[in-house]
């Protein structure tokens, strides 16, 4: 993914942290004000998918690994969270933690297998493993098969705050989203993150410098899966449903599309991408199956003409880091 990554990195010079801080404050401010102007439920969904895309971007954008099976972590976390909240009667924060840990475990297993191959094979392996777990979800009793797990109770956060109130739920999702976003930002700019970028640029060189790159790749993979799990689990509480759609391969494709549209390897790209794609899906819902065609066209257009994505292009034009 060198072609994408180089541009934002070169523009990194002095304005780097300032532009990111300003952009972060603008994003936070918009997310605080927005629920008074548009549907909070839609915004919460956007934040869940934005977090999902940010987690995915951690792998493709900063380690150069294309996972085509991220629906696995998103969907299974969502199932476990929904099951924990509905059947076990856990409070929402514990249910979300249960979902997140499930995703971490699955990420560890899938990661151990997938990092044994590179590039194109890595993408095919992650896709195949995700499809395998899709079949498990289809057959397992607790997932409810075609119906999914419906009517998941939102419950009371810490047993105190009733998440049935939309605005309370909104604040919780906002805190989770911003918290995880800052965490990802921290990871990327930590010494660990620098090693990841080194692996992306030149793995052989990183190895010769003494880094155990497989371990770094595995750790990045698990982190990405875990955060994708947090997104899926939160989504299950917000929309009160976990279904097969969340574990199936089109979902994996969707998160790739969101990240690609926003800009691979940019911190804010996946957020913008998630917003754009979800908005498009809502606006185009009446045209039915054409949504699939339009998504395909966007994929093709992005790859052929627009490889930096929206945020990547903005960063290039204004010579800042986003």
């Amino acid at each position: 993914m060198e072609q994408v990554a180089e541009a934002p990195l070169r523009a990194a010079a002095p304005a780097r942290t300032r532009s990111e801080t300003i952009a972060f404050l603008i994003m936070a401010a918009i997310l605080i004000i927005a629920p008074f102007f548009t549907y909070p439920l839609f915004l919460m969904q956007v934040m869940c998918f934005a977090l999902f895309a940010c987690a995915f971007n951690l792998l493709i954008g900063y380690v150069g690994l294309l996972s085509f099976g991220h629906a696995l972590y998103f969907g299974w976390a969502s199932y476990v969270c929904a099951h924990a909240a509905k059947v076990w009667g856990l409070t929402p924060e514990l249910a979300i933690i249960a979902g997140t840990l499930t995703a971490a475990g699955l990420g560890l297993i899938a990661g151990l297998l997938a990092i044994r191959r590179q590039g194109i094979y890595f993408a095919m392996i992650t896709l195949a493993l995700a499809q395998m777990m899709y079949f498990f979800a289809l057959q397992a009793k607790f997932t409810g098969g075609e119906d999914g797990i419906q009517g998941v109770p939102r419950g009371k956060l810490f047993g105190v705050f009733d998440l049935g109130h939309t605005m309370t739920m909104y604040v919780v999702v906002l805190v989770i989203f911003l918290g995880c976003f800052l965490l990802i930002h921290r990871i990327i700019n930590s010494p660990f993150g620098e090693v990841l970028k080194a692996i992306r640029e030149n793995e052989a060189r990183a190895i010769s410098l003494g880094y155990k790159t497989d371990r770094y790749k595995l750790m990045a993979f698990v982190l990405s899966a875990t955060l994708a799990g947090t997104a899926g689990a939160t989504k299950a509480i917000v929309l009160q449903i976990a279904s097969l759609t969340d574990v199936n391969w089109p979902m994996s494709g969707e998160v790739v599309l969101m990240t690609l549209v926003g800009g691979l390897g940019t911190i804010f790209g996946p957020v913008i991408g998630a917003f754009v794609i979800l908005t498009m899906q809502y606006k185009l819902a009446p045209v039915g199956e054409w949504v699939l065609v339009i998504q395909g066209v966007i994929f093709v257009a992005c790859v052929l003409l627009f490889r930096r994505g929206i945020v990547g292009e903005l960063a290039r034009i204004f010579k800042i880091k986003l």
């Binding site: 072609q3 194109i120 054409w290 699939l292 065609v293 395909g296 966007i298 093709v300 992005c302 790859v303």
Partner: peptide, 27 residues
Amino acid sequence: WLYKLDHLYGLLLTFGLALIIEGTARN
């Protein structure tokens, strides 16, 4: 146009083409 780029772009482009073809057939 993709031969000089990372292999992954070919995968992404053909994935998009697959969506277009399948979506059209479903319509």
